[in-house]
Amino acid sequence: MDTTAYLPLAAAAGLQRALDVTSNNLANGATAGYRASRLVFEDLLHSADPARVPVAMPQPRLSYTDTRAGSLSTTGNPLDLALGGEGLFAFALPDGRTGYGRAAQLVRDAEGQLVTASGLPILDDGGAPVVLPQESGLPVVGRDGTVSDREGALIARIGVFTAPALATWERSGESLFVPRDGADEPGVLEAPQVIQGALEASNVNPITEMVRLIEIQRAFEQAMSVGRNHDELRRAALSKLGQRA
């Protein structure tokens, strides 16, 4: 295959990846605490002939997370928690790892643990699940993360952790993130701003993502059109050469 034929194929492959990322952002536009993904492209130099100047073809190199905060919405549910400013809540994952996220939409399970809808326990500042005594009633959560019963007795302190290089962390479902191997471990945030009865929305802008989706689709169609035109020109050239022979 000549170099020209590679160009639309490389463009289509990169645009397909961009389409997948943008579609996923749109699908999670209403997911509490979701952070949009973005792609980084780089030039891939290719030449079938070492004597010729290589052609630069864009390729998606990696994805990263848009760490901008989403807007806060008041729910009135005392088991919904959000964060003002920096920090992440911590949750125990089934595989033993710890996932971190900005939204805590909690329920109380049969053992009194505060967990997400899928059963992931939220962790205190020491890394242990937060357990409410059966007689404590609905908790009162202070701005510093302290959890008290209706009489004011201290039960626990919800952990809020730093997020060094969050943009490069691995995604783990439920709008959670896990530090990659070799990354700095999160530390306890000294002055968190926990907001009870509220949730942080996704930071996806649906209009922006829809415009991006349309642009990607059009660019994909153009790349496919270039590929088809190249094939037709090649077939025409081969046909004429065959007639002369």
Rank of each mutant, 00 (worst) to 15 (best):
T3M: 14
T3E: 13
L7T: 15
L9F: 12
A12P: 12
A13Q: 14
A18P: 04
T22F: 00
N24V: 00
N25R: 00
A27S: 07
N28Y: 03
T31E: 02
Y34W: 01
R35T: 06
R38L: 04
F41K: 07
D43E: 09
D43M: 07
D43I: 08
H46T: 15
P54I: 05
P54G: 03
M57A: 13
Q59R: 11
L62G: 06
S63K: 07
S63L: 10
D66K: 03
D66C: 03
D66R: 02
T67W: 01
G70R: 01
L72H: 04
S73T: 14
S73E: 13
T75P: 07
G76N: 08
L81D: 00
L83E: 03
G85D: 06
G87N: 08
G87H: 10
F89G: 00
A90C: 08
F91L: 04
F91T: 00
D95S: 09
R102S: 02
A104C: 02
L106W: 02
L106N: 06
R108G: 08
R108D: 11
G112A: 06
Q113A: 14
Q113T: 10
L114K: 02
A117S: 11
A117W: 03
A117G: 07
G119Q: 10
L120D: 03
D124I: 01
A128W: 09
P129H: 06
P133S: 08
P133N: 07
E135V: 15
S136F: 03
S136D: 09
L138A: 13
P139M: 06
R143W: 04
D144Y: 07
D144R: 07
S148E: 09
E151Q: 14
E151V: 03
G159A: 07
F161S: 06
E170A: 15
G173C: 10
L176M: 11
V178C: 13
D181K: 12
A183T: 10
E190N: 09
E190F: 11
A191R: 14
Q193C: 06
I195W: 09
I195T: 13
I195C: 08
G197N: 03
G197A: 07
A198C: 06
A201C: 07
A201M: 08
N205A: 12
N205Q: 12
N205I: 07
N205R: 05
P206M: 06
I207G: 07
E209Y: 02
R212S: 15
E215H: 13
E215W: 11
I216G: 05
Q217C: 11
A219C: 10
E221S: 13
Q222F: 09
V226H: 09
V226N: 11
H230R: 14
E232Y: 12
R235P: 12
L238F: 14
G242Q: 11
